[in-house]
Design a protein around this nucleic acid. Structure first.
Lengths: 199, 199
DNA sequence: GACTATACGGAATCTGGATTCCGCTTGTCA
DNA sequence: TGACAAGCGGAATCCAGATTCCGTATAGTC
């Protein structure tokens, strides 16, 4: 969540109070959007941060930009978890499924994240999969390993991951038993299916 | 989709033109909401129906009421399909999964339906499950039969159905490969799981 | 301590829709 | 066919929020 001036970039460094405020805003936004989701209003964020709306807007040009920043940040954390699983874990299935469970928990704790993932999984995933964050390829690797180990059916594709997470986004927001959803899907990944998946 | 006056109810029958207009509105709304989803504007509906906005509002007090009416109508059709499957089909698994596939297709063809199911599965399902429409109990019966036949794992519960349909609602709107989602989930239903589902 | 570029606060403004209102039409019924 | 209630059209109104603006405050600099 670096900001112009926070780091040692070229643009003249931000004023100390601006840096402080930006941090307060980000933190307030994180809390507000996690709890209330996208319906959170810019004024809510401002109030939580003890700042005027104008200040929020100086740091983030639009509500969407603010949300995007929060999402990117979250996805980076997930990517980090994926990286860790990739090196630490021994059992391929454990590693693969653990990251998915972690992702689910992120959605559970962050209403806005769930809404965005359920609504625009494509862009969310791409952003996280392409840039520095290698989420896409890491998950693909975890999947491949699990498949090679025979833990996941061979016709599952990397694309299926954002797909089930998208469904989860909707489930998490409405159903008490999102864990059953996860279990069901993960079991679907393992099932020695009667027929291979379509497409 | 009966309306006061359309049937032989007590309230003084609607004027002929009103009946005609209501039909045009419902049809226009069905088309518009199916295509564009909830973002459809009341004016859009009015235009499609060759009617003024005011007329739309005389028939449906709010946008939400209009949407609700369309959804209820859809759910009744699904309930009807469930009823048919319940009596016609021989193979329990076929019957059960067929209705789910049909439900998926409804969501695929009706953007608003998918949005509502993904967003408020509880109320949508309840409405359809309680009232005249016995969707809930019919699906439960189809599920039970499939379980007795050994086609579906015993720890799947009736509640899991709206849950996966909720996830599907999100998937259908964003992912090209919703069929893979369905396959995966249905396979999850059949899987002889390593562990029983939580809860 | 004075000066100025940055930041700040938050009232005022703008917008996209939903919903309302009311003068004008048109069925319906005697 | 005339009276009038039921309906109609669509401009005007409302509203919730996002976004802008500008007078004021303050960190950074000499």
């Amino acid at each position: 969540m670096s900001a112009p001036g926070t780091d040692t970039g070229e643009p003249r460094a931000m004023r100390a109070d601006a840096v402080r405020n930006r941090a307060k805003i980000v933190e307030a936004a994180r809390a507000a959007f996690s709890e209330r989701g996208l319906e959170t209003q810019m004024e809510d964020v401002a109030k939580r941060a003890n700042v005027g709306v104008g200040t929020v807007y100086r740091h983030f040009p639009t509500k969407d930009a603010l949300v995007q920043a929060l999402i990117v940040d979250k996805m980076e954390r997930v990517a980090e978890e994926a990286r860790r699983a990739l090196e630490e874990e021994s059992d391929p299935w454990e590693a693969f499924s653990r990251v998915l469970w972690l992702g689910a928990e992120h959605q559970l704790r962050d209403r806005a994240l769930a809404q965005v993932v359920a609504t625009q999984p494509q862009s969310t995933w791409r952003n996280a999969a392409e840039k520095e964050t290698e989420l896409g390829s890491r998950m693909a690797e975890l999947l491949t390993r699990a498949q090679k180990a025979g833990a996941v059916r061979p016709d599952v594709r990397p694309d299926d991951i954002p797909m089930v997470m998208c469904g989860l986004g909707a489930v998490v927001q409405n159903e008490r038993s999102w864990e059953r959803y996860m279990r069901l899907v993960l079991d679907g990944f393992r099932a020695d299916a009667s027929e291979p998946l379509p497409d």
